[in-house]
Write a protein that binds this DNA or RNA. Sequence first.
DNA 1: TCATAATTTCAGTATTTACTGAAACTTCGG
DNA 2: CCGAAGTTTCAGTAAATACTGAAATTATGA
Lengths: 174, 174
Amino acid sequence: MSSADDVKLKQSREDFVAQWGALGTHWGINRTMAQIHALLMTEPEAIGTDEVMERLQISRGNAHTNLKELVSWGLIRTIVKKGERREFFEAEKDVWKIFTIVARERRRREIDPALGVLHQCLDDSRGIDTPEGRAFHEQMSKLAEFVGFASNVADRVSGMKYGIALQLAARLLS
Amino acid sequence: MSSADDVKLKQSREDFVAQWGALGTHWGINRTMAQIHALLMTEPEAIGTDEVMERLQISRGNAHTNLKELVSWGLIRTIVKKGERREFFEAEKDVWKIFTIVARERRRREIDPALGVLHQCLDDSRGIDTPEGRAFHEQMSKLAEFVGFASNVADRVSGMKYGIALQLAARLLS
DNA sequence: TCATAATTTCAGTATTTACTGAAACTTCGG
DNA sequence: CCGAAGTTTCAGTAAATACTGAAATTATGA
């Protein structure tokens, strides 16, 4: 008789889903998307839209939008079961893969646009021949250089095999 | 006669402030805070609340709140000028310092709470003796280990002197 | 090809987050 | 201690973002 364990598991999982969802907010990810991701990460089986709706108590439109968004990120994938007409979804569970996906997506959404702004300002302020103009250009230049550099580093790291990244990290912490 | 240059500089700076503000949104930072930061980063002189209000066309309350928030992050500091009663503000302009400040703040707001959730779920699911329970515990364990590890690495890197970090990064990119 | 199950879209609404403006409070020189 | 300059707070409002629910569309297999 394992029903006590079943209850504990259910509660713990619900807790994880709810809290992970709340955290998503601080990550620029909407609550529902983070909750669905949490739900699927802790679900051994692929599940369908209706079960997601029921488990999270959300509308079909909401479930649909966020499932698609997670698929486009690559954090979950669709599964077709033979003899079943509807789609099922399962999460990528490998932590290193999750990390690299999120890192790339954030670079694309947060760093690349910043670089764009900086390069444009660099161009616009090139050759302004006043003390203030040179100071502005210099500041833009430093920012652009640093952000570009950081972007490349992030790319390299998230393109590594897990083992290599681990080695590198281990040297840093030693 | 440098008024053409002055106009170009003014436009470029306004552009930078506006666009940097828009970017702030994607970084979990509100637009005004990012705009004030951009304004001060490109301003050679320390400026006061009223000038911030005027340059960004925002209310006193808004300017005040976000200036204080930037001070609490350490991205700007207050300056007292002799013979002046009011406070002036100037930005930290060193890119490495800006990076370490932002990195630490984001760790505090994004990673630490996630670790908290994971550790709690680890505890809650310890010893649940069903296949599903063990799988859940295992997944929490992997996530917690990875996030904790990443947090330590980020700490180390953002605690480095710029020169050392550069060397490290150079090795990565070579 | 039709009936129906499943998916997608979107106008309207709810929720969350940010901002205003004015009043309350604090500080300081006279 | 008083009055003016400066700072802080916050109730009300505006703007941005996320969600619902139902209708439109598409895919399936009999």
